[in-house]
Each structure stands twice: as C-alpha cells, then as structure tokens.
Design a protein around this nucleic acid. Structure first.
Length: 870
RNA sequence: GGGCGUUUAGCUCAGUUGGUAGAGCGCCUCCCUUACAAGGAGGAUGUCGGGAGUUCGAGCCUCUCAACGCCCACCA
C-alpha cells in the first residue's frame, strides 16, 4: 500500500489528536442529526439532563458512554436513532452558586431583587449550559445538539404550566398547611426524598410534667426540649397500664404553667423512653398526625430562620434565639426547676438538607403538594405488567415498594430560580386563580414560589419532544422514547416521576426499558466527591489515556447485575492498551494490503482452513455481540470483542497471515471487527476504517451497517481442526520452554497421525513453533532422546539428542497422564453411577462418554511414548 | 424494623437456564522474532465466606449463620 497516510501511522495510537479530528469530522458532516421524517424505525434516548452547575464527572462518563453505545448500535442497525441532550436548571443548586457569588460582593439576593437575580442567574446558566455539553462531546457523544433542551426553556415552561394547571383542575395538586422539611439555610421547603437522614449522637431528656389538680407528675422523654413551648398534649399508649388512670387528665408544661391534656394514642411506643410523649404538632410530623387525630391546635415556636418565637410572654429572654441556643437555656431552666429527671445518650437520625447538609427543621407551613396516590396507580400497573422493564429487574421491586407507599410530594420551593407557580392571587380579595396566564396583571399577583426542579425534569421525555403539541414531528416520531439509562440513585427522584407524569399526560409509558447501571466509586469503594478529594476527572483521563480507552474500560466494568464500579487511574491502562493493540494490528494489515476496492471481495474458493476458522469465529462473535447488546449485557460485549480481536485475530490469524495471507479475509475480518467495536470505541474505529482501502457505500463507519450473523460463514469443522493445530503448536512451544531450548535453535519433528490435516498446516507449524523440518512417519522408530507431544491420536515426535534429559521427559509425560487420569476418574465415577446415566440428559451423558474416550486415547498415546523412552 | 446487594487466584472482578472454575493487573522464566515492550511465548496460584439441604451432579437452587455495604421507614 503506497498510501502516505498509512505509512505515516504512528507506532502508538495518538488518541487525542485522532479523537478530536474524528469528532470534528462527524460534526461537520452532521452525522448525529436525527431525521423526524425518516421512514426508519425510531430509537430514542433522552439524556438524564446534567445540572447546569455541574462539571463532567465519571458518573456522566459512564452514563453517557452507555447511552452512546446504545444509540450508535441502533443507528448502525438501521434505526432512526436520536439521543437528545440537554441540561437541568437545578433550582436550589444553581441558586446557591449564584448567591455565593453575590455574597463575595457582599450582597444578598434580596439586595438586588428578584427580577435582577433571575436575570443574573440566567446569564450564568446560559454560560454553563454549553460548558457541560461541550464536555460531553469529549466523550464522543453522538447526541443531536440541534435538539438540545433546557428544563427552564420556553417549551419546558409551557409544558410545566400546562401540567400544573391540569393537575390542579383534576384536584391532584393542592395547597395547604402541613409539616414540611424546612431548610433554614436554603430558606425553603424541600421534599421528603431531598431529606437525608444521618445518625447523630444525641441526648434523650426526661422531663417531669406535674399533674394538674393532684399530686404526682408524668415524665416524658424528648430529644428536642426547646419545642416544649409548643406542646399541646402528652400522649400515652392506650394499653399502657402505667398511665391508664392518667388518660383524660391534665398536666402542666413546666416553665410555662400552661395546661395540656393527657391523651391516648396507638402511635406511642410503650417501651421507648418513659412511654409518655409530648405532642408538638407544629414541629414534628408524627405529632402533627396525632394532633390532627385528636383535634388539637398547633403552636409554632420556631420560625423559618430556626429561631424561637412565641414564647416571649413567659420567657422573653428566649425570643429570637437560635434553636440550639434556646435548647441549652431551656435545659438550664428545667434543671433549676428540678424537673429534668434523667439524661441518657441516644443515637438518632437527624434530617439533613440534601443540597447544603443543614439540619432540617420540620415546620408547619403552607405549601403546594401533588397528590401522588391516584397518579401512582398507573405507574405501578405499567411496571407490573411489563410495559416498562427495569434492567436489572431487581430494581422493579425497589421502585414498586416506594410507589406503593408513596406520600404526597411537596413541590413548592421558596426560591427565585425555577418555574414560578402559575397561581395568581387577587391583590385585594386574595382570591386564587390557577391558570396558564395571569388573568389580569394589574389586579392579580403571581405566587412567589417556584416548583421543585424534579417537577420539570419529570416531564423530560415528552416536553423535549414538543409536548403539549402532540402533532410535532419529533413527538410523533420519537415519543415514547425507547431506553432510559441512569444510575439507581435517581430512581425515586426522577424515573418514578417521569413514569407517573408520562402516563398521566401522554397515556403511554415514556420509555419501555430503564437500564440501571452501578455508581462509580473510588478504589476503596467510597463515593467520589469533591470534598473527599477522591474524584477521578474524566477529562484528565481522556487527556492521558484517550476517550476510547476510557469508554472501553468503563464499559468492560459494567456487569449485568449493575454492581458499583471501583475505579483507579490504572484501570484505564486496560482500555489504552487495547486501543493501541487495535491500532497496531490495523497498521500491520493496512501496510500489507496490496489490493483495494473490488479486488478485496471475498471469494469462498480462496478460503484456506485458517480463513474458514477465523470467519467462523467472527461469525460466532457477531451473534454474541448482537445478543448481548440487545440484553443490556454491555460489559460482556466488551470482553467478547477484546478476546476475539486480541486472542484470535491478532495472536493467531494475523500471525498466520505472515505465512500465507488472504488479503480479502484479513481486511474483511478487520472491517467487521471495527464495526463491532465502533459503538464502544467510536473514534479509533472510524479513523482506521477511513484509512482502509475497502469498498465503501458510506463516508463514515458510524453510518454503515452493524454486522449480523451470516450462515454462509459457518465452518465448525475447520474451526475444530484449527483448534487442534493450535494445541499442537502450543505443545511444541511448551516443550521448548520446559527444556530451555532457545528460540534461536530450530527443531525437527516427525508427525505420526492425521496426515491429511497436518500436511495442510506445515508452514504454520514451522513458523509458529520454530520448526525446521517436518516429516510424516507411521510408527516412528525413534525412541530415546525424543520428546513428545500429542494431540488426540496424533503424535508429534521431537528428536532432541543431547538436548534433553530422558528422565525429565518421562516425568513431564507422567505429569500429563496424572492430570488426565484425575479427570478420567471423575468421569468414570459418573458413568458408573446408574442414576447419572439414567437421569442426566442424554447429551450430557454422551458428552461425558466422548470425553472419556478422548482422554483414554491421549493416555494411551502418551503411555506408548513413555514406553519408548524407557 | 423492612428490603436489596456483596463475600470466587495476592489485588480488582467476570462466571446468562446446575455438568466440576476465568479475565485484567501483579508475580516467575524466556524474548526488542521487521504491527505493537502500551508487546510476544510459556508458567505458578483458588477446600468459589461457614454450615446444612435438594440433586446422579451445586460457585450457581433452598435454608441457616457470619462479615461488609447500600436503600427505605423510623422510637419521641
């Protein structure tokens, strides 16, 4: 080949240079653009939109790689494939970032006002949207950027408003005063799943509440004494004999003198603490329920900043103090009044804000909620009946458990960045209207709250396709989407909501398969996080090892069970080495092709036994690769291809080609391999393919057809014969190693056995086992000073006068016999067992018999050889 | 308290309907044989966490115990 480009191929794969060049090539040629008007069957994936605040991390790299593999595979399989990219506006996270920036200038958002703040945040978001998507490009992502969306863009806003208004009109959204998780730092309510519980060492204080009208007291236990000013009752279990007589009576809250009733409620656990519980409906979700059951009012004693209020009359010194400060002061007073009975250590779970880790304050507050139970019904149904499948399936159970115990979703957030709630209040009468637009801006003001970020991401699969315009081309072509790829950490946050909303508003599941992969962890199994400093930056890995190398490594680590993936820098050497192997094998092939175009057409007449063998192996691999991708066993695909390309094509076929080559087959197997590898390693395969002088119907490999099983290339018989040849060659190499025969010194052999086969492959043996002369000889008379190999009943005799120690050779052969005999014994044990012969499947019995026969042959061959030696 | 996962070679992990163990890295020996030392040839290494059961046969199925990890719900 006189092609200059091929001559100039570097001896190591220069990943970054080539990857950037190839990605540009795809972009310039608009290879990723999906055509909504195409006649092809659609395949679509929407990206889990990364936060605008984010930078690319390994989780994205894995998630993105898998989506890209599926997209590229289906594109090559003839689907109209769309991978739709986009970003999430990430309400709290983004607002936090911008507020921090303002704080550096000594300002708060209140100083500049809502309008200005939102404007600044938009600028910031616009800036970062492209940053994160550009980073995704470094992954080789074949997503259609012309369709990139943002959860706060016009289309999404329209969808969000419509969904909100519709749900409201159906009575599935309501506003009300309930206990919510309040983050005193974010100054907003957050949902239950945004609250993360951490175990903390705390104290359990037992406080004596004196009875009214009689002697004695009831001792309650609490972890939060400062809330006692908001107590409205003391509750005991109705079956608790200790307190039987006190039910219905009254007691007095210490430090205040306020009288409260002693009530009975099943909720109270007799065995915990003192068995008596103070009820503070305004600051505890369980107490709130108890309070409601008993018609008790709520007294709010902590405000939205986490400061004490409403105790000013009795204890003005507490007013306005932080809740923890107030706790200390309250305890001191209780001690002084001698009502603090006992203090014990107590490990308990404390709710933290997912975004800022501030301790959550359960607070009575007016918020918007989605009534989930009626919506969950269909979402449960469609997973149960298999319309939506989780892979691996165990996540279905997880999903169903959550959905079946679902609680209402608090969707309002007291933030400025997000979809403002489309509820409007009359400035004078306070009358509320929920509508797509403000009915009369002069007289109505809009609700100041915004929606939970997950409200808009819950609509992602259809809002990005043009919904509510169900006539849009994209909606008609690409919705519902096919596969959703994500980590298990957002099944509740996101997947469940998309299913729920999708079914409610589009009447079909938004996707048919949810492919859940594991999470990326560091080498010690710890979650990667910036604060721990244990992150591995994908961009750095790409720079150092190459994108395809990273993709291959990540892919190979994906197990079918979706186990978490422990990563270290070194693991990427695996992918890099493989990329380099592909590069160099291709370089060799390209350099050795003298033909091109039509001259490289396969002609079965020219197939040698080796050609048939490799074509047969390739064919099997093609079948397995297709099956495994279809079944989301993507890690398996990586290892099948690694094994085939390296251990079959490179180690054997290319080596054999140095002796006797069939250019057409050599090129064909390479081209097919490149296609098979393309979804995982798109750049290197595209580059090499473009250098190949084969006939091309497309300008890009990524546009060609993915290989499919071809019955014409079934050559099982030749395949088995070649396995024998390889066995023989390995045996000879083995022998050389055992007797320390240097590679430089050639050996001669005599073959006694399958002359028909071995005569065909003499050149292979000569070259690969470094043999000088081959003779065929029945019942060879050579005896002493020989070493032996055997493959089946074929004997290979290696006269090695003076080079070998006879005793050592006997020992060597005996070892082999021992191995075979061990196996033979276990096989015989089985065959002598009547129950095995009767109850095992026929094929298994047959196999066992056949194997026994094989082993017996081997043993007798070897024994014969030994007898000649001794 | 409920659920899930993990336990296999020194390390990291595969092992798809049960037929007696594999890869990468690491280790040992030899080799720069004109695609590749990010390479080639050969080699060593496992009572598959413990115990019991089902079966002709168990890494795989059932039960149980242990250790580690995750999720959900929480006792104020």
């Amino acid at each position: 080949m006189d092609n200059l480009q091929i001559q100039n191929m570097a001896t190591t794969y220069e990943a970054r240079k080539i990857e950037e060049e190839i990605y540009k090539f795809w972009e310039t040629n608009e290879c990723f653009k999906a055509d909504a008007k195409s006649k092809k069957e659609p395949y679509s994936i929407v990206i889990p939109p990364p936060n605008v605040t984010g930078v690319l991390h390994m989780g994205h790299a894995l998630d993105g790689t898998l989506q890209d593999i599926l997209t590229r595979y289906h594109r090559m399989r003839g689907y109209e494939a769309l991978w739709l990219p986009g970003c999430d506006h990430a309400g709290i996270a983004t607002q936090n970032v911008v507020e921090k920036q303002l704080a550096k200038e000594g300002k708060s958002r209140h100083d500049i006002g809502r309008e200005e703040f939102v404007k600044i945040t938009w600028d910031w978001a616009n800036d970062h949207k492209s940053k994160i998507l550009n980073q995704f490009k470094k992954l080789g992502a074949s997503f259609d950027l012309s369709r990139a969306r943002f959860t706060l863009d016009e289309g999404c806003s329209r969808a969000v408003k419509k969904v909100f208004v519709d749900l409201y009109n159906k009575g599935l959204i309501y506003k009300g005063s309930y206990i919510v998780n309040w983050c005193p730092r974010c100054q907003s309510a957050i949902s239950d799943i945004e609250t993360q519980y951490e175990n903390e060492e705390g104290k359990l204080w037992e406080i004596s509440y004196p009875l009214k009208d009689e002697m004695g007291a009831i001792v309650i236990a609490t972890t939060r004494p400062e809330t006692m000013f908001g107590d409205v009752a003391v509750a005991v279990n109705p079956n608790d004999y200790k307190y039987k007589d006190l039910i219905g009576k009254k007691c007095v809250i210490p430090l205040t003198g306020r009288e409260i009733p002693i009530i009975a409620d099943e909720y109270v656990d007799k065995s915990f603490g003192t068995g008596a519980l103070k009820i503070t409906p305004a600051h505890d979700p369980n107490d709130f329920e108890v309070g409601r059951r008993h018609g008790l009012k709520s007294i709010k004693v902590i405000d939205e900043q986490g400061r004490m209020i409403a105790c000013s009359e009795v204890h003005p010194e507490l007013h306005g103090r932080d809740r923890y400060d107030a706790r200390e002061r309250t305890l001191r007073m209780l001690k002084d009044h001698q009502v603090l009975v006992r203090i014990t250590d107590h490990l308990h779970a404390v709710g933290k804000c997912q975004r800022c880790n501030t301790t959550i304050e359960p607070l009575l507050s007016e918020q918007w909620f989605v009534k989930m139970e009626p919506l969950a019904k269909a979402a449960i149904e469609k997973v149960k009946d298999g319309s939506i499948k989780f892979v691996p399936s165990r996540w279905e159970k997880n999903y169903l458990m959550w959905m079946e115990n679902i609680r209402d979703w608090c969707i309002s957030r007291q933030l400025w960045w997000g979809h403002q709630i489309p509820a409007y209040y009359h400035k004078k009468t306070g009358e509320m209207v929920v509508a797509l637009e403000n009915p009369d801006p002069d007289n109505y003001r809009q609700d100041t709250d915004v929606l939970d970020t997950w409200f808009s991401s819950g609509l992602w699969p259809f809002e990005t396709m043009g919904w509510p315009d169900t006539n849009s081309d994209d909606y008609k072509k690409f919705y519902p989407t096919t596969t959703l790829v994500t980590g298990f950490d957002i099944i509740f946050f996101w997947v469940a909501r998309m299913i729920t909303m999708g079914l409610e508003f589009t009447k079909v599941p938004p996707f048919s398969t949810v492919y859940i992969h594991g999470l990326i962890r560091d080498e010690n199994g710890q979650k990667m996080s910036k604060s721990k400093g244990n992150t591995i930056d994908p961009v750095e890995i790409i720079e150092k090892y190459g994108c395809d190398a990273m993709r291959f490594t990540l892919t190979s680590l994906c197990t079918y069970g979706g186990q978490d993936i422990k990563l270290s820098n070194e693991r990427f050497e695996y992918g890099r080495n493989f990329a380099n192997k592909i590069w160099n094998a291709s370089r060799f092939v390209l350099m050795n092709l003298t033909k091109s175009g039509k001259d490289l057409k396969l002609d079965p007449k020219d197939f040698s036994i080796a050609d048939r063998w490799i074509l047969n192996e390739l064919n099997k691999v093609i079948k397995e690769v297709n099956e495994n991708i279809e079944n989301y066993r993507i890690g398996e695909v990586a290892s099948i291809l690694y094994d085939f390309f390296w251990n079959y094509y490179c180690d054997w076929y290319v080596e054999l080609s140095k002796i006797e080559k069939n250019e057409a087959v050599m090129a064909y197997v390479l081209e097919q391999s490149l296609k098979l590898l393309h979804p995982i390693m798109p750049h290197i395969t595209e580059k090499i393919w473009q250098l190949m002088p084969v006939e091309k119907s497309e300008a890009a490999l990524m546009k060609t057809d993915f290989p499919v099983y071809n019955k014409e290339f079934e050559f099982e018989y030749e395949s088995e014969q070649m396995q024998n040849v390889f066995e023989a060659i390995k045996s000879l190499r083995n022998l050389r190693a055992d007797f320390n025969i240097p590679v430089g010194s050639k050996i001669n052999i005599k073959i006694d056995g399958d002359e028909d086969l071995f005569s065909k492959i003499i050149p292979y043996i000569k070259r690969l086992a470094r043999v000088e002369n081959v003779e065929f000889e029945k019942n060879s008379k050579d005896e002493k000073h020989c070493a032996y190999c055997s493959v089946g009943d074929t004997k290979i005799i290696v006269p090695l006068e003076g080079l070998i120690d006879i005793n050592k050779e006997i020992e060597r052969q005996n070892k082999k016999i021992q191995k075979f005999e061990a196996e033979l014994n276990s096989l015989n044990a089985r065959l002598n067992n009547e129950k095995f012969v009767n109850s095992a499947p026929k094929e298994v019995v047959e196999q066992t018999r056949a194997r026994t026969k094989e082993i017996k042959t081997e043993i007798s061959t070897i024994s014969e050889l030994i007898s000649k030696l001794s």
